[in-house]
Computed example of a mutant assay.
Amino acid sequence: MDHCKETGNRLRIECHFDDPADQTNEEIVLQLPTFRSCLRVKAIESRRFAHFMSTNIFIALFSGILLVWRRRKLAAAQYRRMARRIGLV
């Protein structure tokens, strides 16, 4: 697509060709553009932002859960070692 090379963003447009003088000759087929290039499309940018934010939130939650699990596991191992040294086990 030639119209998307600059940014990759495109905006859907509706074009209608009404020429009353040329309606008798139906052999002429016009191809009207259905998309145009634009710097930003609000819907695409907001979707990308939402995807970015949800990915960051998921990674943060996963990392936090993993951190808490690891700390508890290391603390439990340390308590067991300490109990063995003291002779409680």
Rank of each mutant, 00 (worst) to 15 (best):
F58W: 13
R81H: 06
A76Y: 01
S37Y: 00
G8K: 04
H51Y: 15
C15M: 13
K73E: 11
N9E: 09
R81N: 09
Q78V: 06
R10D: 06
E45Q: 10
R40M: 09
R80S: 12
V41M: 00
R71S: 10
R72W: 09
C15E: 05
R80A: 14
M82P: 04
V41K: 01
R10E: 01
T34E: 12
C15Y: 06
F62L: 14
M53S: 08
R47E: 15
R71N: 10
R36A: 05
M53R: 13
P20T: 03
L32I: 07
N25I: 09
A76L: 09
R72I: 06
F52S: 08
I28D: 08
D22Y: 05
C4E: 14
L11A: 02
R47H: 11
F58D: 14
F52C: 04
P20I: 05
T55M: 00
F58T: 12
E14L: 12
L67C: 09
N9G: 01
R12I: 08
L30M: 10
C4R: 12
R40A: 06
D19Y: 06
Q31S: 14
W69A: 12
H3K: 01
L74D: 13
H51A: 15
G64K: 04
T55A: 07
V68A: 10
E14D: 13
L61W: 07
R70N: 02
F17I: 03
G8L: 05
F58R: 13
S63Q: 07
D22P: 04
L74N: 10
T34K: 11
E6C: 08
N25H: 11
H3A: 03
L67R: 02
N25V: 09
H51K: 14
I13D: 00
I44N: 03
L30D: 02
Q23N: 11
T24W: 15
Q23R: 14
H16V: 14
A50G: 02
S63D: 06
S46N: 03
T55I: 00
H16D: 13
I65H: 05
L74M: 11
T24I: 12
E26T: 14
A83M: 08
D19E: 11
R70P: 01
R72D: 08
S46L: 12
R10S: 01
W69H: 01
L61R: 09
P33T: 04
R12K: 14
A43R: 03
L32T: 08
A43L: 03
R72F: 11
N56P: 01
M1A: 08
G64N: 11
